[in-house]
Each structure stands twice: as C-alpha cells, then as structure tokens.
Design a protein around this nucleic acid. Sequence first.
DNA 1: TGAAATCCTTATCTTTTGTTAACGTTTTCA
DNA 2: TGAAAACGTTAACAAAAGATAAGGATTTCA
Lengths: 199, 199
Amino acid sequence: MDKQAQLEAFRKGIAQFVTFNDAEWEIFTPYLSFSNLSKKEHFAVEGKVCDYMCFITRGAVRYYHIKDGQEITGYFSFENELMSAYKSFLKRTPNTNYIQALEETELVMISHQNLQQMLNHPLLALKIERFGRLIAEYYICCYEDRVTAFITQSPEERYVILEKTAKDIFQRIPQHFIANFLGITPVSLSRIRKRTLLQ
Amino acid sequence: MDKQAQLEAFRKGIAQFVTFNDAEWEIFTPYLSFSNLSKKEHFAVEGKVCDYMCFITRGAVRYYHIKDGQEITGYFSFENELMSAYKSFLKRTPNTNYIQALEETELVMISHQNLQQMLNHPLLALKIERFGRLIAEYYICCYEDRVTAFITQSPEERYVILEKTAKDIFQRIPQHFIANFLGITPVSLSRIRKRTLLQ
DNA sequence: TGAAATCCTTATCTTTTGTTAACGTTTTCA
DNA sequence: TGAAAACGTTAACAAAAGATAAGGATTTCA
C-alpha cells in the first residue's frame, strides 16, 4: 500500500475518535512516520522503552510475555486497529512484553517525541489531548470487558463466546496463541473444542 | 469530614494527574457536588446509566456483577481513589454491574453534564481534557497489569502476590469477595491459604 | 524439494478447582 | 439482647485443567 493510501486508511480509522479538517490534516501528517514489519519481526521487546504508537494498515501482531522461558500470548491487533506497548509508551518505562508481527505488517506511526510536540502546538493541542483521551477511554472499555470475562466466565464460556463473536480469528491465528489469550493451555483448548463440538 | 476538608483531599488526590492554580480552582469547584453512602447502599446498579465520576474521601466500595443469581465481586475502591461505572459513564449506556458501599463512604462527585460543560469552558477545556486523558491512561495501566496476571499467573500466584502487595485488604474486605476478585471461589481461596501457610 | 519446524490432537496421570453441604464463630441489627 | 445473617473452614466427590509425551499432518524455508 502506498503512503497516501495508508494515510487515508489512518484518517478513516481514527474518525471514531477525532476528525481533522483539511487544514489540520496538513499540519498533523508531517508528525507521522511509516514502517513495515516482516513476519516474525518484533515491534517491541522486553526491557526497552516503546517509542511509537501505531496504526496498522495491513497485517497482524501478537503481544506476548515470557514466563519461565515460555511465551504466553495475551493479545492480538489487526489492520485498522491501534497498536502499542501502551504502558511503556505512556510511562516511558521499560516494556515488560513483546510485540511481534504474525504476518507482513504495515504501520503508520506517531513517535512519543512528536506526540509531545503536538501537545504543545497551539493549533493541535486540544484536538490531540482529546484524541489521546478518547483512545484511552476506548481501551479502558475493552479491558473492562476482558477482566469481567475472566471474573465471571469459565474458560469454556470464554471460548464459546469468542467463537461466536470473532470466528475469523481462528482462521488467522494459530490455536495455541488463542489458548493463551483465553487464559488456558493449548491442550485444554483442544479438549474444550472437542467437548463443545459434540454437544 | 466537612466539605472544605473533602475538597482539599480531592485536590491533593488528583495532583498526580493535574494541578490547578487558585484561580482555576475557583472556577473548577462549583462544578463539583458531594454525597454520602451508608453501608450497603448502592452507588450504581445494573441497567441504569451512571451519571457521576467520584473521588472517595472516606470509605470503600465493591464492584460486582450478578450472574445466574450470584454476586461476583470484581473490584474494590478505597479512600483517595477514583470510582465510577466508567464504561457506562463514558458511553452513556446502561451499566452492567453494581457498585456498593462496604463502609460509610464520602464522595466528591462530577456529573457527566458538568464535565461536558467544563470541556466547553474556554478556561478549563484543555486542563479537563488532559485530566480525562491522564485518568484514562492511569486505569489502562492498572487493567493491563490485571489482565497480564490472569494470563500469566495461577490463582495461587495471584493470591501470594496480593498478600504481599496489599496485605491490608485482607483486614478490610471479606475474604469471599477477594476470592471473586482473584477469579476463584471462596472455598478455593480458603484451601490456597491453608496450602501456602503450611509451606 | 526435502529436512526441520510448527501445529493440533490424543492419551495418561497429577493437580487444582468447582460444587454442595455441614459446622462453628462472629457480626448485624431490630 | 437475642435471633438471624454473614463468614470462614473443612469434607467429599465430580469436573476441569495442567504437565508431559507421542504421533501425524501441515507448513516453512534454505
């Protein structure tokens, strides 16, 4: 995808949070940069501060932790979604997990430095503050649902709901990553799938 | 606690997010209101839109869902912390859980309506946008840690860590609520406690 | 293209958790 | 103050999940 098309996709993708008129867009876009990730390439690694907030125009990534030498996948992001090691990016602290491309991935990026400059730019500040607030609020709602699922649902219930609401993820993501995401082992997910098929 | 003392506590409590000079404070405080909750009184109930964002100056509350007729406690907030049915408050959608006072509780409150007015007030807008953004970012970091705990830790590990990092909660909150919070049943928590004591 | 890596399933065994119920203690509140 | 409610522990059994290993299919990539 060429940069112009990526910018268009980005503009459309963030319209749920904030819309720029053409004059604002002219000021805004020079603060953006672009990058590609090849399959298995890391966007973020443990111990490093994450300097970019991204919008994925194509591809998919997984977020994972390493515990006792084992990778545990906690989340995914796909095209037309935002991606960042959010906590590290915001707090400027070393990241505690990894983000890795599952496919060829294209990104539109905002560096932390540029973000700060925009927050000091008289014509952008208010809109960028709002953008940041709405993004954060959006993610809070996602997280709230996720925690609620862990509190109130069994692994099997979480699987059944995921299978209903995001069937396509099973075509795109290896099943053992999805198992981690659901909070169980791959073996256990395989059993649950067999069990729920028979019913 | 009298209102002046509550306001002082509030100002101090939000200083981690935003600080007001005295002139700004004068403009800001008329948008606030006050309320008390007696023990077991509900601040929020399922099905109603939550109209207030609160700061707790005294007391404690629990957040719980009802599933199959059973109450499942998912979170707590204490004095000097913020409290709201955040998702409902932000999205103006019916709330999906309950918030109930565990003790006599005192609140400083911002109504959604007043918040919107402040966001349109030329002298407050930027600071309030920032306040909202920083609060949301703060909660995202909390949620991120919580989800990571569910993904990467066993119930026993979650208990041991909670016992280390927030021992006082066990003196203040009934144990079966804490069990829900950890994602397990009260019986299971009782077993874990016995098990880890013996080791 | 062919060896290596990845992936899913299945089996076996162990460990943990859920469920239900009972019991004694403490707290609540009319 | 006294009956009722709330609370934590324990027991017994069932259900589910974790750990480990093996086997076969598919994919990857040099």
